[in-house]
Design a protein around this nucleic acid. Structure first.
Lengths: 155, 155
DNA sequence: AATGATATTGATATTCATTTTCAATAAAAT
DNA sequence: ATTTTATTGAAAATGAATATCAATATCATT
C-alpha cells in the first residue's frame, strides 16, 4: 500500500535531484514519506505542525523549501484558495478543480470534461489562448448541510 | 457620460454612509471619482500611484480603507488572481469570470450561463450547496499572440 | 456660524505567510 | 577519509494588508 507509493515518489524525486545536482536529505525523505502517506491539501504550516513531533529539530523553512521542490519536480501541485494560504496536493492522474466548504474547510476535488470544453470555447471566442485555469466552488458540503438542518430542528 | 456615473456612485455611497453613521470625506469623494472614471481592475497600489499626484497628501492606508468601504457598500468587487494581489472592479450588472493574460496582464471579463449551469449540476451531484464560485482562465490574449507571431517571423 | 462628538486621516508600526540570509552541517563525488 | 558545496535551522527580511494613534475634518446641534 502506502509504502510503495512512498518508495516510488522517493525514487522520482531522486531522479530529479540527480539531474539538478541536488541532494536527497533525511529531511526531504521524511517529509515526502509523510506527505504522500496522507492524501490532503496541506498548507506548510499544517504539515509542519504534524511533522514536527516525528522529525526532531525540523525547521519550518525546510518544509517550505521541500514543498517547493516537490512542485518543481512535478510531484506536487500548488493551490491557493480564498483564505490566501498556499496548499500542496500530491500530483495524481487528471486535472481537476475544487469545491471548498465554508463550514468545515473540506476540499473536494471534481473533474468535468464538459466544463473544460466550454472554457475552451469561450476562450476561442475571445481569441484567447488558454494555458491553465482554476475553478473553485465555495459553499457547504453535505455534512455541514446536515449539521445545519439538525441545528435548526433543535430550536 | 462619466460625470453622471460618478455622481450616481457618490450618492449611492452617501446613502450607505448615512445609514452607518459614517462620513463623506474629500478623500473618499476623490477616490471614487477616479475609480469610477476608469474601468479597470485596480490594485490599491496601482490606484494609489495614479491618484497620488491628483490628491495632495493622500495616504496609502486611506486608499486601502476606501476600497474596502466600497466593497461593503456594494459598489466594488474584490478579486484576487494568481499574482496574489487584491484588485477591485466597479460593480456592474452581471456576474462574470475572468481571463488573465500572462503576457500583458490584461484582465478580460466573460460570462457564460452554460458553464454556471454545469457547475450547479456538479455541485448537486456531490450534495454540495454552492454559494459562490470563481473561474479564471490564464493564457495569452489576442494582442500578445499577434506580437508573439510577429516576433517569430522576424527571426 | 460656532461648537462638540467622533469618524477619518496620514504616518507608522504590526501582522502574517513566505522568502532570504548565513554560519554550521551533511551529502556525495573523489 | 577528504573535499566540495548543497542543505539545514534560526533568525532576519520581505511585501501586502491591517491596526494604532494623535491630529484633523465632518456634520449634527446649538
Amino acid at each position: 500500500m502506502n509504502i510503495n507509493i512512498i518508495k516510488r515518489k522517493e525514487s522520482e524525486l531522486t531522479h530529479y535531484l540527480r539531474e539538478k545536482g541536488l541532494r536527497l536529505t533525511q529531511q526531504r525523505k521524511q517529509i515526502i514519506a509523510y506527505f504522500f502517506s496522507k492524501y490532503k491539501h496541506y498548507s506548510v504550516e499544517e504539515l509542519y505542525e504534524e511533522i514536527k513531533p516525528q522529525i526532531a529539530g525540523i525547521g519550518l523553512a525546510t518544509v517550505y523549501r521541500t514543498m517547493q521542490l516537490l512542485v518543481e519536480a512535478g510531484l506536487a501541485l500548488q493551490r491557493r484558495f480564498k483564505d490566501n494560504i498556499t496548499r500542496y496536493e500530491p500530483v495524481h492522474k487528471n486535472h481537476h478543480d475544487h469545491m471548498i466548504c465554508l463550514g468545515c474547510g473540506e476540499i473536494i476535488e471534481f473533474g468535468n470534461k464538459k466544463i473544460e470544453a466550454m472554457q475552451e470555447e469561450v476562450a476561442k471566442r475571445h481569441k484567447f489562448v488558454p494555458v491553465s485555469h482554476t475553478l473553485q466552488l465555495y459553499g457547504y458540503c453535505a455534512k455541514c448541510m446536515a449539521k445545519q438542518r439538525r441545528g435548526k430542528r433543535e430550536k
